[in-house]
Computed example of a mutant assay.
Amino acid sequence: MVDIGIKSLLNRGVLAGWRWLDQIGKVTPGTRAAAGFGSFGADSTIGFPAATLMNTGAIHIGTGVRIGRQATLSVGYWPDYPGVPERGLVIGDRCVIGDRCGLVAHESIELGDDVWFGQDVFVCDASHGYQDPDLPIGEQFGTHDPVRIGSGSWVGHGAIILPGTTIGRNAVVAAGSVVRGEVADHCVVGGAPAKLLRRLKPGVGWVGRRGDVRPVRRGHFGVEETGSESA
């Protein structure tokens, strides 16, 4: 049985070592890993450890981006895939991507500026077919349908963004939602499949599905109420 003093000392050593690895293992500008990206903006980081970083030459990351631990950023079907597009995955400035998120591009996934993800969000621009009854589903590659997420939008924990989805500016996707199709600017959607829950109506406020209205509020935490004016 390990002495409690020795155990405490070992624990401190392990935690100190992990903190060191956490700092030194990040992908940041100037590191060899960052140099392999199509572009990697100033003051951007990818947490350590990453899950998968594949075909990074087709991945472009803006400035001030924060990407959490165990994230997957990939383009194509396998390393050195010959059909990789030049800008398969584009992440704008000041985006925040939570831990364990996966962005898997085959043709095009694009995030605008100031897009924030919770943890465990998955985004993909391709799926599988199923119509050949004799061919394994995994070998029935589907079409590539680009995904766009507009600037200032928020995607909640565990949401799934399916191929062909376009999300507008300053939209909200509720946690656990499955989104496909088009989400307009200044809308709140949620559910599986995601449905419109609330939208901004200029001069009125944020109108819910049953006609209830929430006022427009200004400021980072909505502390200043401005009444029924448009955002």
Rank of each mutant, 00 (worst) to 15 (best):
D93C: 05
E110M: 15
V65L: 09
A58R: 03
T165E: 01
I137S: 08
I91A: 00
D125G: 08
L111H: 12
R69M: 06
A71K: 09
F117W: 10
D99F: 04
V147R: 06
G68A: 12
G88A: 00
P85Q: 00
E110Y: 07
A174D: 01
L73A: 09
G57A: 13
F37E: 13
D113T: 00
D120E: 11
A42L: 10
G47S: 12
G156A: 02
E86R: 02
H60E: 10
A50V: 14
I149M: 12
S153G: 12
T52R: 15
E86G: 04
S127V: 11
A175V: 10
S74N: 08
E110I: 09
T165R: 00
G102F: 04
G36K: 04
I161L: 00
V155I: 14
A159I: 01
H106P: 01
Y77E: 08
D114A: 03
S39V: 00
P163D: 09
T63F: 10
G156N: 06
G138Q: 10
G112L: 00
G150Y: 11
Y81H: 05
Q70C: 02
L53C: 11
L53V: 14
R169M: 08
G38S: 03
G68H: 10
A174T: 06
H157Y: 07
I109R: 07
A126Y: 06
P163V: 03
R87N: 05
V115G: 07
I97R: 04
S108C: 13
G83Y: 09
D120K: 10
H157F: 10
N55Q: 15
T56L: 15
G76C: 09
A51S: 12
V75R: 15
A71P: 01
W116A: 13
W116G: 14
I61F: 08
I160P: 05
Q131G: 05
Q119I: 11
R100Y: 08
G118M: 14
R66D: 07
D43G: 13
